[in-house]
Design a binder for these strands. Structure first.
Lengths: 207, 207, 207, 207
DNA sequence: AATGAATGAGTGTTCATTCAT
DNA sequence: AATGAATGAACACTCATTCAT
């Protein structure tokens, strides 16, 4: 009875619980929607008690906020990495960005689903903060589009709107993709890169 | 006290009430989501009593089902009309279809929003029936795409998936369009027609 | 199965339910305090369901407010009647007022207890409104005191404060009175009238 | 890490914590009522953790009990001292007692408020014990009254009840007194001494 | 077709208290 | 003595739905 968990392990436990709750919330919100999922359901999925949830997140809204924030952070990280490692021309940068984006959607389909479907239930400063973060993430893609239009690599006359259209397309993948489907992860990414470049009217030389 | 409304007038009243309820439901579901909106809220918006709702629709689920069904029917009607009036080649048929689709999104933004966001809360045969109807509607667009690919008018190698990508793009318009925004209805339609044809890699001669 | 309750009876039923709920709330708040009593407890005492409570009162706070308002209204009515029927001099007016006050405390001990102990849990405009009403009621007594001091009937040099002291005394009766106690209702009233006049230093001629 | 606080200092710390908790509880119970205040709130006010409260007091009830016990002890001490230092006749003893009582109410208004309002939430032997202590305290005042009535100094025919009426008056001061009000501490005491003697119908010679 | 009253299950959240360390 | 995590019961309130009329 003299055994004590070292402090580091305790911290790990706490963090593990937090992660379990966030995952549970993601699953519950994803399957039943934010309003359709109950805190009781989240607790059950996380393997803890209802009231213990409130030791980690002060409210259901905050829980949703944190779920969305983490999803966006991961997506942003992936996009940054992809763009940094890509070449200098807009086409190859866009191709890598789209690949990374699709990769994220496939790896974190539920997170993407929840991200697009449940943001609307966030209110107040929590919402504003998240919207700002998401805008920054999306700007990685739209920025490339604008760069390419400016440089003449993309010939579309609608720089701003075309970027949004591409993002819509990519986000929507989460709503129909099945891991056991016809298309592999790589094919999916490749296809969407092609859609994007075509939509932007990049000349064949640049694709 | 012997006065009775003639049957025709009663029917008219009933139909007016039904429409009021459906509109109220559309508004409530659109603003608060299916699970976030209560039947009380719908009743308040419709200007009737909570319990009277059940004289028109047997449950909240049926109410949602009917809202979605009507939205899809109107969209299908518009698409049909547009395609019938278009030329014979896939490009002009697709352009008209996209125009009609965007027109519907603009005219019935809330309906489109609800249609994409809240279908998931429908269950059972109600759901199956609706999904089938929506598939038929979307097939109008994807059919054109496949026709064009088959005839060589569209050069994309991904006939099926490209159609889906285009639909995603169009549906997403509902989530950001503002009537007082930068783009007119016509410009919006035109732009999206161009996106679609570019994405499908239609040669310039066909655009 | 053709029997229908006449509209008047329905109204009576509704009113009876309202009264039952108010009585239940009075009992629960009186025995367990506002915060100690639950709406479930109130519902149980009223013989109805928890949720049905909310068809009559929009919140626990409103329920408390209404309980207090009714108690004050009844007290005010009794005081008015007593004062109107009393003579013209301050002494006899005060005596009748005190008698009526004590009578109310004895008849509605619980209401008086709740009135003094639970007002503090009322908040917002509900509270302000009630405080104003209570002030008007207490002014009936303090008014007589000031009248008597002005006319020289009462010789106390502390007109305003003495009135408050008397009211404190009377209110406190609710906290110890027992119907099966040593003193009859009449004796209790008589005693307190005497205390009040003595405290105000009314000369013996006026008592 | 070998340093240890000397036992005396630990004891002092412990006592300081205990006092902080009792004060916090007094404040919380006073402002929100016993049932309205949470142990979390008490902990926050005391500047310690929720669970640490239970190292000092085994339950919320015990905490309330201790708060009330201390308040009563202080009041009793003050009353004793005042009476001991007063003259021999009932009038001057009562006057001093009233002065001390009012002084306590002014100095420890919150304690007095809590004492009268929250005793009711005490149960079991805890309650009995406290009630007995309070009775002893109040007997200091009522004893003087009875002594004075017996000696003829007070002419009221209601020895027992008059004492209670006076105590009611004095207790109630806590519910309206404001430090920045019209009356000074001394004036307040003087006034109430006068009320008490008048109520007891002490002849002018004795006041 | 229309209503207000009624209900039981469920909501998010807080409670006093205990546990492990 | 001190903490943060944990819990089960309870809280006020709302839900979709039904009933009686």
């Amino acid at each position: 009875m003299n055994d004590r968990l070292p402090a580091a392990l305790i911290a790990q436990t706490a963090r593990a619980n937090e992660a379990a709750i966030l995952n549970a919330a993601l699953g519950a919100f994803g399957e039943q929607g934010f309003n359709g999922a109950s805190m009781r359901e989240v607790a059950k999925r996380a393997g803890t008690s209802l009231s213990n949830l409130y030791n980690y997140f002060p409210s259901k809204d905050h829980l949703l906020g944190e779920v969305l924030r983490r999803a966006n952070a991961e997506l942003a990280t992936r996009l940054h990495r992809a763009v940094v490692e890509a070449g200098d021309d807009a086409s190859s940068r866009l191709r890598e960005a789209v690949r990374a984006y699709v990769g994220f959607v496939v790896d974190h389909q539920l997170a993407m689903l929840v991200s697009t479907a449940e943001v609307r239930y966030l209110r107040g400063p929590e919402r504003d903060r998240l919207v700002a973060e998401r805008d920054r993430t999306q700007a990685i893609v739209t920025g490339i589009v604008e760069q390419g239009v400016a440089s003449g690599e993309f010939r579309t006359p609608h720089a701003t709107d075309a970027g949004r259209a591409i993002l819509s397309m990519l986000n929507a993948v989460a709503s129909w993709y099945r891991a056991d489907g016809r298309l592999s992860r790589g094919q999916l990414a490749e296809q969407h890169a092609r859609y994007a470049l075509a939509l932007l009217e990049a000349p064949l030389a640049h694709r």
